[in-house]
Simulated assay, not measured.
Amino acid sequence: MTLRLGTRRSALALAQSQQVADALAAASGQAVELVPIVSEGDVSRASLSQLGGRGVFATTLREALLAGRCDLLVHSLKDLPTAQPPQLVIAATPAREDARDVVITRDGTPLGDLAEGAVVGTGSPRRIAQVRRRNPRVSVQDLRGNVDSRLARVRDGELDAVILAAAGLSRLGGDLGGLHAEPLGLADWPTAPGQGALAVETTADADAALLAALSSLDDAATRTAVTAERAVLAGLDAGCSAPVGTHAEVTDGDLRVRAIVYALDGARRVGLDRTVRLELPPPDQRGYGGYPGSGDGADAADGADPIARATRTGHDIARRLLERGAADLVPRESTP
């Protein structure tokens, strides 16, 4: 039997889906074919800020999966609403690529040094706010389109710079055609929850052999990190396009999370950094609540489950951000 993998039609979506298809074919011993599907987000020319967090890049694909027109889907995780439909499961999150944003220019001028009136293209409210904080002298122009068309607008002089995801450029081969890339550090410029990661989704009642094959593609550290990032977004009750930057990583048993909520105009921000221990230490080394230094007795209920720990951490960060004033900055919109 040939497995049918549903994907968006863009060059980037096809490239990353083919990577998953090849890995799944090797794990399952079955052929995997791509099934291109046009999503609402691909058809609409509206600004990302207007489209909001309604899952415009995922809904049509999910409908095809539930209708039996494909067996699994590959999404860019940052495009998925945080609420998971009960009929579907994210069966694998492969190892994440570079989560950073990059600034693309003709001559390598850093974003902070671009001259007054320089035009920077991006359609992301988060990136718009970050650009305005980094360099208030520039003008920001709303931007849609695929990676090649965005690069062409810089190359042709229509734009002085664009902001793109490093992972997308890498998956397309990394050829900038003579343009220059400035990677933006995640400490000062956290990106969208889940950026750089893929989500492989199938039905909750999928064949056990398919679920087992997909589980072999899952990267535990990536799943834990993106779970924390998406829990922050869910706790803020904000959509996928909200001006929220968050990045988490697992290092030596610690989960480190940085989250920042921006005002849409970039004038204000509220941020929080937190590091928690994922691995449960021996009983004689545990603090109150089960973890060293923990003051939250409920943490003990997480046991040794890193996903539960990541979820709790993300929700707690969101609560603290709201208490510190983030509620006045982020557009609230319960995502479906």
Rank of each mutant, 00 (worst) to 15 (best):
P306F: 03
A326Q: 08
H315F: 07
G314H: 07
I307H: 07
D305A: 02
D328I: 03
D302T: 13
A301K: 11
A327S: 15
T311A: 13
H315L: 14
R312I: 05
A308H: 07
R309Y: 03
R309K: 12
G325K: 08
A301W: 11
A300G: 11
R324W: 04
R309T: 14
A308F: 00
R324A: 15
L321G: 08
T311W: 07
D328Q: 14
A300S: 13
G325M: 09
R309H: 09
A326N: 11
A310D: 06
R324T: 05
G314P: 06
D299V: 04
D316S: 14
R309G: 02
I307Y: 08
D299H: 09
R312Y: 06
A318L: 03
G314Q: 07
L329F: 03
H315R: 14
G303I: 10
L322D: 12
A304R: 12
A304I: 04
D302P: 00
A304H: 08
H315T: 08
R319M: 03
L322P: 02
A300H: 12
A318R: 01
L322K: 09
R319K: 12
H315G: 14
D299C: 09
I317K: 05
A327R: 12
T313F: 03
P306M: 06
A310N: 06
T313Q: 11
I307A: 10
A326P: 08
R309D: 02
L329Q: 01
G303K: 10
R319S: 14
D305I: 01
A318E: 01
A327T: 09
R320H: 13
D302M: 11
L322I: 13
R309S: 11
E323N: 10
A300K: 09
A308Y: 00
R320E: 15
G314E: 07
A304K: 07
I317A: 05
A300Y: 10
I307G: 03
I307W: 04
P306A: 06
R324S: 14
R320Q: 15
A301H: 09
D305Y: 01
T311P: 00
R319G: 08
T311V: 04
A308Q: 13
H315C: 01
G314K: 06
E323P: 00
T311M: 04
